[in-house]
């Protein structure tokens, strides 16, 4: 499999060509430095993202509270994570760092609140 991608590790934005052979070996070309290779390899094998979203809130000064996955999760798990977050309804108050969902989408990563929302 071959993928073209922009390296985002620095403003240079090198255009990488990443090839994965049948035996699983990954080759990166087009990179100017080592970080580009690391990035290309990760994006090809298992791209990871921090997901930020909103959780619905009852009895708060605002109807929603911002939240995020405490660590990056596999990109493929994002839709499931968003679904689980959308299904939540929490009660105010929420503090930054409060766990909103433990182990989201079976990733072993928690979703935590990122705003302080007082009760009404």
């Amino acid at each position: 499999m071959t993928k073209e991608m922009i390296c985002i590790s620095c403003p240079m934005g090198c255009m990488l060509t990443v090839v994965q052979e049948a035996d699983g070996e990954v080759r990166v070309t087009g990179n100017t430095c080592k970080r580009g290779e690391t990035y290309g390899r990760q994006e090809m094998t298992c791209p990871m993202r921090v997901v930020t979203s909103l959780v619905r809130l009852e009895g708060g000064v605002r109807p929603v509270c911002s939240c995020k996955t405490r660590q990056p999760i596999p990109k493929a798990k994002i839709p499931q994570a968003l679904e689980e977050i959308a299904a939540q309804l929490k009660r105010a108050p929420l503090r930054r760092g409060d766990v909103v969902i433990a182990d989201v989408a079976g990733t072993g990563v928690d979703v935590i609140a990122t705003s302080d929302i007082a009760a009404r």
Binding site: V50, T52, S53, L54, S66, K68, R96, T114, S115, D116
Partner: peptide, 25 residues
Amino acid sequence: LQQCIHNGFGLHYFGEELTGPEYAG
């Protein structure tokens, strides 16, 4: 920052990536 709930703030100042509300907080 209160409305910038994505992450990408504070890598230089705090040495870690925060969301906007966390940075403001």
